[in-house]
């Protein structure tokens, strides 16, 4: 007997780009914070750099499907993301750590991560084990049953990372993940991100250029809602010379690229 094959069965399971944006525009309030951004990211760890107000957080929110793009095209993991599309499939494979994330103070870390795992519609059978694994990976095992309100800033950040990775996302968005982490924890974090980046698209938004230089395979530099530069971390270090501002090669490269872009914008 013949059986009809549905479109869902034949759809490709791998896509050239985890994130594919063309002329993306996103509003933050009335202001157009992302204005005509073109971006294509595959698997790997990407560092999103840019000055304050460059539209990094707004871009992250749009990629996390929290805000609706105001224009342009955006596809995540091969699925178009706009006002009309069903977002469930994409959202199940997405991990997101917002810049400021709220939490219920009376939840324990395990309950918080478990609640997020449940919201991400993970199968019930492996849920408790996945929660434990995520908590172990961020090094919060000893604090798993402590209430969220008793945690320090760095621990909260790590709990946030745990909820983002609990569903083994294929697209992981981390907005300022290293804020509040001590130097040793930052090293652990870089290790974790490198590990995740082998088969996942990890986009890390940060101000710390040295984090990017150490943990990211590629750097995405945005300014005023547009893509300014994209390339490997080594390329970024090669952009600057000792005359540019900065204490490390990567920092000098960062300021060199930004200054060049601003000079071109003025012209």
């Amino acid at each position: 007997m013949m059986r009809a094959v549905s479109a869902a069965e034949t759809v490709a399971t791998t896509h050239p780009w985890a994130v594919h944006a063309e002329g993306l525009r996103v509003r933050a309030g009335r202001h157009l914070a992302v204005d005509g951004l073109d971006l294509a990211l595959g698997a790997g760890v990407y560092g999103l750099l840019g000055p304050n107000g460059a539209g990094k957080t707004t871009l992250m929110r749009a990629l996390a499907t929290v805000t609706n793009p105001a224009g342009g095209r955006l596809a995540l993991l091969g699925h178009p993301v706009d006002g009309r599309s069903d977002l469930r499939l994409v959202r199940r494979q997405l991990g997101y750590l917002p810049q400021h994330f709220g939490f219920y103070p009376r939840f324990t870390v395990r309950e918080f991560v478990g609640y997020m795992a449940w919201l991400k519609e993970m199968p019930k059978a492996g849920l408790a084990a996945a929660v434990q694994r995520a908590i172990d990976r961020v090094g919060l095992t000893a604090k798993a049953d402590a209430r969220m309100k008793t945690l320090s800033g760095g621990m909260l950040r790590r709990a946030g990372i745990a909820q983002a990775i609990v569903n083994d996302p294929r697209l992981l968005l981390l907005d300022e993940p290293t804020v509040g982490l001590d130097p040793e924890q930052r090293l652990d974090f870089r290790e974790l991100v490198r590990d995740l980046g082998t088969d996942t698209c990890v986009l890390v938004s940060t101000h710390l250029v040295e984090d990017v230089a150490a943990a990211c395979t590629e750097v995405v530099l945005v300014n005023e809602g547009r893509l300014v530069w994209q390339g490997t971390a080594a390329d970024l270090s090669g952009q600057g010379d000792p005359n540019h501002a900065g204490d490390s090669a990567a920092e000098r490269g960062y300021s060199a690229v930004l200054r060049r872009h601003r000079a071109e914008a003025v012209r």
Binding site: R61, A64, T65, V66, L87, R88, L89, R91, R92, L94, Y96, P98, H100, F101, G102, F103, Y104, M116, W118, L119, K120, E121, Q163
Partner: peptide, 15 residues
Amino acid sequence: TDPCWELIAGTPAAG
């Protein structure tokens, strides 16, 4: 009213 709104709004269960 929901401190977790940004986390929840990005999950498939939101809706």
